[in-house]
């Protein structure tokens, strides 16, 4: 079955690059430009995987994940951060609110795909 990935980033170019890479590998992609929109999208239709940025307007990545994990249906949905942040404290915080992993920008398509495939099982 085709898996749906929710891609959350305030940068349209990043969103576009990630989406194209994922779509090319056969995934369905839903995009959101900030945490608040992402939460609404996730509530509307639960994605199989979430890839999110940290620094975004309105609701940042950690805030979004915190709210997302409060939804009962969020269990089992892996969340991967894709961010320029490299600070360990923030990574730890992301882990604490319920992210499974962290990838640092810039990324290459191959690496992104291999990670997503691994997480998708």
């Amino acid at each position: 079955m085709q898996k749906t990935i929710l891609v959350v980033d305030d940068s349209p170019s990043v969103r576009r690059m990630v989406s194209m890479t994922l779509k090319g590998a056969g995934f369905a992609v839903v995009e959101a430009d900030d945490g608040r929109a992402a939460l609404a999208a996730a509530e509307r239709s639960l994605p199989d995987i979430i890839i999110t940025d940290q620094n975004m307007p309105n609701l940042d990545g950690i805030g979004f994940i915190k709210a997302f994990r409060a939804l009962p249906q969020s269990a089992g949905v892996p969340v991967i951060f894709l961010s320029t942040e490299t600070e360990d404290a923030i990574k730890a915080q992301a882990r604490a609110v319920g992210a499974i992993g962290w990838m640092t920008k810039p990324f290459n398509d191959e690496k992104l795909l291999s990670v997503v495939k691994r997480v998708a099982g």
Partner: peptide, 12 residues
């Protein structure tokens, strides 16, 4: 313990 609810797949 919360690995599964976070979407981790130990089998992988």
């Amino acid at each position: 313990p919360d690995t599964l609810s976070l979407g981790g797949v130990p089998g992988i």
